[in-house]
């Protein structure tokens, strides 16, 4: 490319970057805290409820996770969770309800191509990377822990 033209395009790209509307970080962080916090508070109530029913804390926390996943799925089906995400950003994405939303929203979206090739194949298009890198990082951290604690001697 002609260097003058390249310089012009570079100048334009820089101008776009400079003129882009900046998100309000303070507002976004506050909203993420509030939305994420509200979800976690709800999770705490659910956990306290199940602690009275289950024998051990581990069992109570397992069923709490299942309940939160269920609630996330319901909120997605009702068309509420995407609004929460718009408002709270990572506050809605990070809790397990967000993970549930990523699977259910994809399942809803692709159901119309059939249960096998549509929903079955594409249900994990969004959640897939979370699983892949979640498992991979879990393995690596476990490996480091194992080496440090001397399990491989």
């Amino acid at each position: 490319m002609d260097p003058k033209e390249a310089a012009k395009q570079k100048e334009y790209r820089d101008l776009v970057k400079a003129m882009e509307p900046r998100p309000s970080f303070l507002r976004n962080m506050l909203l993420a805290f509030l939305v994420g916090g509200a979800i976690c508070l709800l999770g705490q109530f659910v956990f306290d409820f199940f602690k009275g029913l289950e024998r051990t804390e581990a069992e109570a926390s397992a069923i709490t996770l299942a309940a939160m996943i269920f609630l996330g799925a319901i909120a997605t089906g009702l068309g509420v969770y995407d609004e929460l995400g718009e408002l709270g950003g990572a506050g809605a994405a990070v809790p397990i309800t967000g993970f549930s939303n990523s699977i259910v929203s994809a399942a809803m979206e692709f159901k119309r191509e059939g249960l096998i090739l549509g929903m079955g194949c594409k249900m994990f298009t969004i959640a897939g990377p979370v699983l892949v890198y979640g498992i991979l990082s879990g393995f690596l951290v476990g490996l480091v822990k194992g080496v440090l604690l001397g399990y491989f001697r």
Partner: peptide, 17 residues
């Protein structure tokens, strides 16, 4: 949305642009 971006019900925070 589904062809160019994400499922409609996914929690996405859109940017001003």
């Amino acid at each position: 949305e589904r062809q160019f971006r994400y499922p409609v019900e996914l929690n996405i925070q859109h940017r001003g642009t």
